[in-house]
């Protein structure tokens, strides 16, 4: 064993010996104080450990609590904002009933416009005006007159010999017999089917000096029959205007 090693051995032994000597039970006042302090330390350690384990927020200091509250507030603000957004989305989705109503209205509008534009067939109460023309005296203007009179009386849908009458319908003379309506040549007898209030329209036809009278003067044979159900089945293809643009 070398000298430094032996020295070290001795110093270690001396250390343990000192510790042992100091640890020997001695009943002095100082030792009592130390014992009490050690007891206090152990007690405090346990109390603190217990406190730290058992409590969440109550042993945090005020500024930590304020910071915590701040962050919680911020988070709650963020979450409530998110909740607002989601509520708005939900409301939007729920107003699918509103969309349903809009769809219904749009469908109704489409039907109305389809009847007016002649793209949909229509049935309903109305009259049938049959004009026999043995002398070939009836001019397009006479038919136009009858149509205008019917419109005046509230006709909602009309057709003449299988040609739908709409706002853009034109009546023109043909080279031979009959006439041209919207590019289609029609011949007598002209059968005008109009949907509307049958009584009003029949009365309008029968006015003295009116349509029926005028046609009779041309030696034609107009016959008006009121029917509880007539069908306007002639259709026109839907066309979109080339020049006119909606101006809102």
């Amino acid at each position: 064993m070398t000298a430094p090693a032996r020295e070290r051995e001795e110093s270690v032994r001396a250390g343990w010996a000192r510790l042992w000597r100091a640890g020997r039970p001695r009943l002095t006042r100082a030792n009592l104080y130390i014992c009490v302090l050690a007891m206090l330390l152990g007690f405090a350690m346990v109390a603190q450990v217990h406190e730290t384990r058992s409590s969440g927020l109550e042993n945090l200091r005020q500024e930590d609590l304020v910071a915590l509250l701040d962050s919680v507030n911020q988070q709650s603000l963020k979450l409530s904002k998110e909740a607002d957004e989601l509520t708005a989305t939900k409301k939007q989705l729920e107003s699918g009933t509103g969309d349903q109503a809009a769809l219904q209205a749009a469908t109704q509008r489409l039907e109305t416009l389809g009847i007016l534009a002649g793209t949909l067939p229509a049935t309903g109460p109305g009259i049938r005006l049959t004009i026999g023309d043995p002398g070939n005296n009836v001019r397009p203007s006479d038919i136009l007159n009858a149509v205008e009179e019917l419109r005046d009386a509230g006709a909602e849908a009309m057709q003449i010999n299988g040609v739908r009458v709409i706002a853009a319908t034109y009546f023109a003379a043909s080279g031979g017999t009959g006439m041209v309506i919207d590019g289609t040549t029609v011949h007598a007898p002209y059968v005008i089917v109009a949907i509307g209030d049958p009584h009003t329209m029949a009365t309008a036809m029968a006015i003295p000096g009116g349509v029926v009278d005028g046609l009779k003067q041309l030696h034609a044979t107009p016959v008006v029959t009121s029917e509880s159900r007539v069908a306007v089945t002639a259709l026109r293809p839907a066309t979109s205007p080339r020049y006119a643009q909606p101006d809102n």
């Binding site: 640890g23 020997r24 330390l41 007690f43 346990v46 042993n59």
Partner: peptide
């Protein structure tokens, strides 16, 4: 030796009594 026993006694007392640290002492005890 005696201080170590004192420490142990303190620990045991603390474990048995389950003391609550007074509010005013809470920031300072640790």
């Amino acid at each position: 030796m005696i201080p170590a026993i004192g420490l142990l006694v303190g620990l045991v007392i603390g474990i048995v009594l389950h003391p609550d640290v007074p509010l005013g002492l809470q920031p300072y005890l640790p």
